[in-house]
Design a protein around this nucleic acid. Structure first.
Lengths: 210, 210
DNA sequence: GTAATAAAGTTGCAAGTGCAACTTGTATAA
DNA sequence: TTATACAAGTTGCACTTGCAACTTTATTAC
């Protein structure tokens, strides 16, 4: 998977920084990222750490729209977060690089080869983000918890072709990701274990049918 | 909402066509779009008509990943459709413009102002597509049919601020979009009608609580 | 080490949903 | 016009799920 500054030398990256007028901000765990310039035309890149984009509903409910990790991009102009209420919260100590969208899209910059490389990387990352969202939708479209779990396993299996899946988060987080009740998901995992479909050891899930 | 060739003169569009080496294909209703060059690096633009991106599962199930209408873009490099089995099927007579992705990302082209405009439009369309996917995810994350319907109404209401929502598809399609059983959705619509929350007349839904 | 906090795991029960099997209504084509 | 689809609408029933209320086991903080 491409990263924003792949195929660029340090010198080129520095030139890019100047060209795009970047700013770098640092956040601690649970701090909100860019609370003041939310509506501005910016693109953010996670240089270090990780964060979550949460949608805050009228009733106070929080929905995780996206998990951002190192080298992920975000911003109202490139990977829409709604005009509605949302927050981006750092999961840990996190460094964020901020680009002015208007400078990115300024034709004066386009003549630089390194700028082109950067744009190319952006398209690649955008593509990955679309793939992630499509994966999530394919899971959420399943009507039953068992089907959602199996679809999740299928998608993860296809990435590595290994029977062992290592969850990048807790089982509770998995239930949020699948948008099902946590205890109902545990019940279904228990069924799958008893039927010898899977084995679960902490965050390692083994697909016995593969 | 931006279209691919907004802010460009006819002359500029023609120059773009040459620069990007475009091809235009025509399809009839129910015909598959670009079946042969699926895996190639291309970006498609719907010039006329509409189509659906369907995911075909191992068990034969079909899932609609995306509805494409006039001026929508698609393609493996810009709005990921999985490497897995999928089809793009024309809903009606449809004209598609196909761009070679490698030419789009060729730095030689970047010096042209009209090329920059086009790139700008692409970013705008990408943004819209992300917004649409986020909307869908927000709906699918709801656990109950009633909540899904209300979330759908909420999103549509916020677009126009009008109590009347006009469905762009049938109620059956709505149940697919919400990923719920059709008859269960009808039952819930009936409840909402009886509780005077909504009125339904064909494809017009009136939100009585707004 | 101990306390505090969160995750993991379980269960009963009520409520919601999917599914099947219908009927009715409404387009589209011969 | 009649036939043929397909959408709209309804209902009973079995099964699944959400929810609440727990206990147990890990983590994290002091």
């Amino acid at each position: 998977m491409k990263k924003p500054f792949d195929d660029l030398s340090t010198a080129q990256i520095n030139k890019l920084y100047i060209l795009l007028g970047v700013h770098i901000y640092t956040y601690n765990k649970n701090q909100e990222i860019l609370p003041t310039i939310k509506s501005d035309n910016i693109i953010g890149i996670i240089l270090e750490g990780s964060a979550q984009i949460k949608n805050i509903e009228f009733n106070g409910n929080e929905i995780i729209l996206e998990n951002l990790s190192k080298d992920d991009i975000f911003g109202t102009n490139i990977s829409a977060t709604d005009t509605e209420n949302y927050q981006i919260i750092a999961n840990e100590n996190t460094r964020v690089l901020v680009i002015d969208y208007n400078k990115l899209i300024n034709s004066k910059n386009l003549k630089h080869v390194y700028f082109n490389t950067f744009l190319n990387n952006l398209f690649d990352i955008i593509n990955t983000k679309f793939r992630e969202k499509n994966e999530r939708i394919k899971i959420l479209e399943k009507k039953q918890i068992r089907e959602k779990l199996l679809e999740y396993f299928e998608i993860e299996y296809n990435k590595t072709r290994l029977r062992n899946i290592y969850l990048p988060f807790t089982l509770k987080d998995l239930s949020d990701y699948l948008a099902v009740n946590r205890s109902a998901m545990f019940r279904e995992l228990k069924n799958l274990k008893e039927e010898k479909f899977i084995e679960v050891k902490g965050k390692k899930i083994t697909l016995l049918y593969k």
